[in-house]
Each structure stands twice: as structure tokens, then as C-alpha cells.
């Protein structure tokens, strides 16, 4: 395939769209390397004259920002970063593997009824805020508040509808005959799914994994209401950079946000070839 030449109008429209999309990214990266005096200077400073890494240092050494006479940061972001990494990875793995099982189950062994998939989806029909409080009450009764087990459980549960529905569409697109052919060739049902179904929808599994990871990585509501002292996540930590003495520490927030973007960009880059296949899935040749 070779790139088509863009028409000038399309180029302008795409340029505008890109500018709108990428401007916040540009701004946050710039803010992350601004010294405190430049954070909310007026008129705005677009590109700092003296870039600094003090904001990044402050993330892991809260006293560092004191060099600029700014105080009040009490907590290192280390715990939040590891908390996010741990909770997101495990919860994503859980969500996608359970989602894969239910997707195959619904598509291949269901009775065609729409009820089960709709019930699964109904978990997403309430705003998180509406179910956060009941979850806090239930979790405190069973001792799961302020613990990663609890956080992972709720992340996996909250994203399961998405992983089930996304994967379901990929399994549906896969002709049932390929699995039957594997069984006729002597594979058991389970082995047919492991050696044929899953490799064939690999692109879809990667796409789903990335999507679910992004959801978990940026989740705020549940981690806010479930974390006290033991656990933390990046979005919760971001909210903590609001101090009594120095106001909001925009530069430090920006530094953490930049850090939080890295794994997503990395994942996206690594699996981009699969993503394209995953998104244009009809590509199973008929």
C-alpha cells in the first residue's frame, strides 16, 4: 500500500484536528519542565527559558521542590506509581482472561440468548459514582478497603463488560468452522480454542488489552474512595498535589502526568501492528 497524496483541504482539516489533540500534550510536557515561577506566569510562558527537572525530582523526593521556596508536598509518588502499575496490570490480565472465557462461552456455547451479555453489560449502565459508595460499604465489611486486592477486584469487575463485549465481537467474526475443523482433526474443544481460536483473534486480544489497561490506568473514582494510607494510584496522587501553602503544584502534576503517559505510548507502539489488525478485524479471509 502506498500513501495517497492528501488534498489541501484535508491536510488543513487534519492539521487543525492534530493541533487540537496534541496541544494539551505539548502544554503538559512544557509545564513539566518549567520552574515553579513559570507555572502560572502571566502572560503565559510557552517554552521555558530555563528548563528544569525539579518537578520530576519532587515526585520521588518531596523535599526537592523546597529549593524554589515551595513547600507542603508530603508524599512521594513512588507508592502511587507502583500501585498503578500493579493494580492495572493484574486487573487488566484478569479482566481480559475472564472476558475471553465469557466471550467464547457466549458466542460458542450460548443458546443465542441476548440476556447474559446484556446482564454483563448492565454493570456499565450506572455511573461509577453511583456504585462506588455501595462498594465501599461492602468492601469495608469484608476488609477489602485500602487494599490492592480490593482495588484489583473492582477494576477487573468494572472493565469486564468492556473486555467481554469487545472480545465477543472478535470471536463472532471468526467462523465457527475453523474450530470444528480443528476438532475433526483430533483436537479437544479446549485445545481447539487454545491453538486455533486464540491465535486467530490475537489482534483483537491485544487491542482489548490496551483499551482495558488505559481504563484501569486512568481510573480515579474507585481508587479515590478505596484508598486511605496503604494504597495509592497515579490519578489519586495527582489530586494530592494541591497544597495549603503553595496552591496547586502544576509543574509536579504535569511531571507525573508525563510519566503516566509513557507506558501507554510504549504499549501502543509495541502492539500497533496488531492494533491495526484488531481494529479492522473483518480481515479473517473468507
Amino acid at each position: 500500500m502506498h500513501a495517497k497524496k492528501l488534498s489541501p483541504l484535508l491536510a488543513v482539516v487534519m492539521g487543525l484536528a492534530l493541533a487540537v489533540t496534541l496541544f494539551p500534550v505539548f502544554w503538559i510536557v512544557m509545564t513539566a519542565i518549567k520552574p515553579p515561577t513559570d507555572w502560572n506566569a502571566s502572560p503565559a510562558i510557552w517554552i521555558p527559558s530555563e528548563p528544569t527537572h525539579i518537578n520530576f525530582l519532587t515526585l520521588f523526593d518531596p523535599e526537592a521542590i523546597g529549593a524554589y521556596g515551595v513547600g507542603g508536598v508530603s508524599q512521594s509518588a513512588t507508592k502511587a506509581v507502583w500501585g498503578s502499575v500493579r493494580a492495572s496490570i493484574i486487573a487488566t490480565a484478569l479482566s481480559v482472561s475472564i472476558g475471553l472465557l465469557s466471550a467464547i462461552g457466549i458466542t460458542r456455547y450460548g443458546n443465542g440468548s441476548k440476556i447474559a451479555p446484556l446482564v454483563i453489560l448492565s454493570g456499565r449502565m450506572f455511573p461509577p459514582a453511583a456504585i462506588a459508595v455501595p462498594f465501599v460499604i461492602i468492601f469495608s465489611n469484608v476488609g477489602l478497603t485500602d487494599s490492592y486486592v480490593g482495588l484489583i477486584a473492582i477494576y477487573a469487575a468494572a472493565t469486564l463488560p468492556f473486555s467481554t463485549w469487545m472480545l465477543k465481537s472478535f470471536v463472532e467474526d471468526l467462523p465457527r468452522e475453523v474450530e470444528e475443523a480443528a476438532m475433526i482433526d483430533g483436537r479437544s474443544r479446549l485445545m481447539a480454542h487454545l491453538t486455533v481460536t486464540i491465535p486467530l483473534i490475537r489482534g483483537g486480544i491485544f487491542a482489548t488489552t490496551l483499551f482495558i489497561f488505559i481504563l484501569n490506568w486512568s481510573e480515579f473514582m474507585f481508587s479515590l474512595v478505596l484508598s486511605y494510607t496503604n494504597i495509592s494510584t497515579i490519578p489519586v496522587q495527582l489530586a494530592r498535589y494541591v497544597t495549603a501553602t503553595a496552591g496547586t503544584l502544576y509543574g509536579v502534576q504535569a511531571a507525573l502526568a508525563v510519566l503516566a503517559m509513557v507506558p501507554l505510548m510504549l504499549m501502543g507502539y509495541l502492539i500497533q501492528s496488531h492494533l491495526a489488525r484488531g481494529m479492522t478485524f473483518g480481515a479473517i479471509k473468507q
Binding site: P175, E177, V178, E180, A181, A182, M183, I184, D185, G186, R187, S188, V196, P199, L200, R202, I284, K285, Q286
Partner: peptide, 19 residues
């Protein structure tokens, strides 16, 4: 199915495109 020694070819090929 796998032990009947009966082969079957399907209309939509059912080739394992990942291999």
C-alpha cells in the same frame, strides 16, 4: 469427532490463517 477418521472440508475453508 477427531477419532472417526472422517475428514471434512467446509464451505468457508476453515483454514487456520494464523499459521
Amino acid at each position: 469427532a477427531g477419532k472417526r477418521n472422517v475428514g471434512m472440508v467446509f464451505q468457508d475453508y476453515a483454514v487456520f490463517t494464523s499459521m
